[in-house]
Amino acid sequence: MLPEAIELQVVTPERHVLSENVQSLEMPAKDGYLGVLPGHAPLITLLGVGTLTYHKGAETRYLTVMNGFAEVLPDRVIVLAELSERAEEIDVARSRAALERAQAEAAKPGTQEAESSEAEAKVERATARLQTASKGGGSGSPQDSRRSTH
């Protein structure tokens, strides 16, 4: 008997972001997006930076998740991310400003390797936020509403 729904829990050190029963979800695993349907085999994976998408009934919702890991069980998915925000919580203007700042920082010549990789991580985070926000904003661009999964 396969379970019909997945209990999705998203937890960060600072708060419990989400607890919902969902039909399916896609999350940014470290090596690419990973789709999960009910009855998935138990799995543990590291997470990268990106957008977690979940489908609940007819609704599709989006969250950013940044680093951490996920545990998948047939009827339960626990996402432990360092940072996670729902699409509607994201401050688009601020993220855009952060992205510009980080891009300028990354492009600056003569920076140490450690610094530039830090700046790149900032670019990555800001990009993830903006992407999530644009999808969750209702009129999300249709061309990339489906990401490749494996």
């Binding site: 829990q9 419990h16 990973l34 085999a41 138990p42 799995l43 543990i44 994976t45 890991f69 545990e71």
Partner: peptide, 27 residues
């Protein structure tokens, strides 16, 4: 804490045969 995951651990949880997406050492 209201998280269900904190309630009584499911029996033999440590023995669940996980698939590790990355090598277990990396995780």
């Amino acid at each position: 804490s209201s998280l269900p995951m904190e309630q009584a651990p499911r029996g033999g949880e440590l023995l669940v045969d996980y698939i590790y997406e990355q090598p277990v050492e990396e995780i």
